[in-house]
Structure formats: C-alpha cells, structure tokens
Design a protein around this nucleic acid. Sequence first.
DNA 1: ACTATTTTTCAGTAATTTTTGAAAATTCTA
DNA 2: TAGAATTTTCAAAAATTACTGAAAAATAGT
Lengths: 168, 168
Amino acid sequence: MKISEARQQFISTWGAMGTHWGINRTMAQVHALLMISPEPLTQDDIMAQLNISRGNVNMNIRDLIDWGLVDRVLIPGERKEYFTAEKDIWKVATQIIKERKKRELDPMMKLMDQLSKVEGDKRDKEVKTFLDTINGIKKFGAHADDMLDVLVKSDENWFLSTALKIFK
Amino acid sequence: MKISEARQQFISTWGAMGTHWGINRTMAQVHALLMISPEPLTQDDIMAQLNISRGNVNMNIRDLIDWGLVDRVLIPGERKEYFTAEKDIWKVATQIIKERKKRELDPMMKLMDQLSKVEGDKRDKEVKTFLDTINGIKKFGAHADDMLDVLVKSDENWFLSTALKIFK
DNA sequence: ACTATTTTTCAGTAATTTTTGAAAATTCTA
DNA sequence: TAGAATTTTCAAAAATTACTGAAAAATAGT
C-alpha cells in the first residue's frame, strides 16, 4: 500500500470511528489529517485535502482547539494561521478523557446525587428500583473515575503497566 | 423531588448522554426506562411511557438485545412479550465495554496493523510521521485493552480497587 | 386450517445535524 | 487609516439519521 492511499484510509477510518463516539465525522477527519501531517497546515490546506468548505474547517478547528487537541501555530513572516495536532497519542487520549470527564461524567454524577434524594418510601418497589439504579451508577462513576486517573498516569509507570497485565 | 419527576429526569438525561456517545437518544431512553422499572414491560408499555411508535420501540429493543443489555422475558399465561434490562450497572458497563471493544477497538487495531505495513522510506518525513502515529495508536490500543480487562474484573476485587486509589 | 393477536418490516416522512458560501468582522501592512 | 488578506459568523441548503404507521409476517389458540 502506498503512503497516499494509507493516509486516505486512515483519515476516512478515523472519521467513521468518530461518529461511533459522538464526534462528528469531519472533526475527526481534520484531527486525523493534522496528526499525520509532519508540518502545520493552514485552513486552505485542510480545505483542499479534505474537500470541505472554509466555514466547515474553521468551525471544526475551533472545536478541536476547545478540546485541547489542536494548537494554533504562528510561523514568523507568514500572514496565515497554521494548525498542528498533538502527535503523542497518549497525550491525545489523556486530553480526551479529561475533557469527557469534565463535560459528561462530572455533571452526570452531580445529577445522580440530586436524584438520589428523591422522596418516597423505600418499600415502594418503584422507589427502591430507582434508588438502586441511581446508587449503582454513583458507585460505578466513582470507580471509573479512579480507573481513568490510573490510565492517564500509567503511561510511563512500568510497575503499573506490568501489574495491569497480571490482573488481566 | 417526587419519584415520577425523578424518573422522567433520569430517562431524559440518560437519553441526552447517549447522544454524546454515539447512541441514539431513544435507545438510551428505552434502556433507562427498563433499568428503573421493577417489572418487565411490554412494547405497549414502552410506547405509552415514552410516547413513541410501535416500530420505533421494536427496532430499538432489538438493538438493545443485540448489545446484550435487554432480555426477552416470557411470562406464563401471557401472550405478549415482556422485556427487562440488566439492573446491575457493573454488568451493564462490562457488557458495553465488551461490545465496543469487539465492534470498534478490535477492527481498528487490525486496520492499524495493515497500515503499519505501508511501503516507503522512513526517512521521508511524511512516512515517518504516519508510522509514528499508527504505531502510537497500536501501543495505546494494547494498553487500553489491558486496562479495560482490569476494569471489568475489578468490581469485587478489593485489592485491585484499593490499589487503584493508591496510584491515583 | 382458520382467526385473532402480536411482532416485524420498511417506504415515506420528519427531525436533526452538518455543511456551504457569502457577508461581516478582524487583522495586518504600508 | 485605507485597503488587502484572512478569519469568523450564520442563514439557508444539503445530508444524514431517526421515526411513524400501516401492511406483511409470524405466532398461538381453537
């Protein structure tokens, strides 16, 4: 397989993967393109390579910057803005995990706390089932939180990495 | 907050959460409803409670069964089919992780293996950056795989659960 | 085998999400 | 500070995804 074909394949697959994870196809593709680009790109480069409009590039780049996955780069003497993506996939994953935790896990847990204060008799089956579900989610959330922290930190921790394999 | 209100809130939030994770709103809502329902429900119950059509219920229930999150229940003497969801959130999470790994992580890793065989000179920056990205993803995938196995098994493993907190 | 009940399918429609492109805003240069 | 280059915005259009409802298929009872 030639490099140009492989790059296309990667961009397209990364985009499809995004849609399964609630990320829009184009954003994932822009991210993929920047990850495999040795040099920073301009909006025009991205427009050309992915065949999408200027507005689209602009909006998705902005979102990627909000997610902390892409940075603006200033090239001395150049008028245009350049963009580059973090290449270290560990940092990418860490960043995504942090953001999703902040945006989704934390608010969900806060809601569970509120919902667990529901009024009603616990002998009422409906109330009991509800509370069991909510409390189960709370427990799971706390555990997942610990686990994600470990994942984030286990990159260069040999002991941890080995320990994980043992428990597998 | 009254139980009926709390239930509504939960269903609606679980549905919204689903959309952030590539799961369609209604499927997540059906799942939420079944999780907090003490007794199995029929398609008609679900239609009534969520205000959706028969076809919609049917399709989403089928998908939830494919995901291993919902089971058909036969009630003796009843003509209609009943449905129930796993209530133990740990089992739910485990099941989702297993399925997503099978459906998404595994095929992605297989593709990375292929792409890492791309032809070209590694001194070519484009090739080098591409390979670095692909190989990074491969490493990460393997590690995530270990980690997910641990998560799945750490539910009732006191030592592991404690160990996780230490490394936090 | 016929009939009543229930489930499944799927073409058409509706709702939502994404994209475009041109105008407005901003930024830079001289 | 005029004007050229670039970025940003956003209403309208396109594309995608989800939903409905009625017909077809399946199932169970007599």
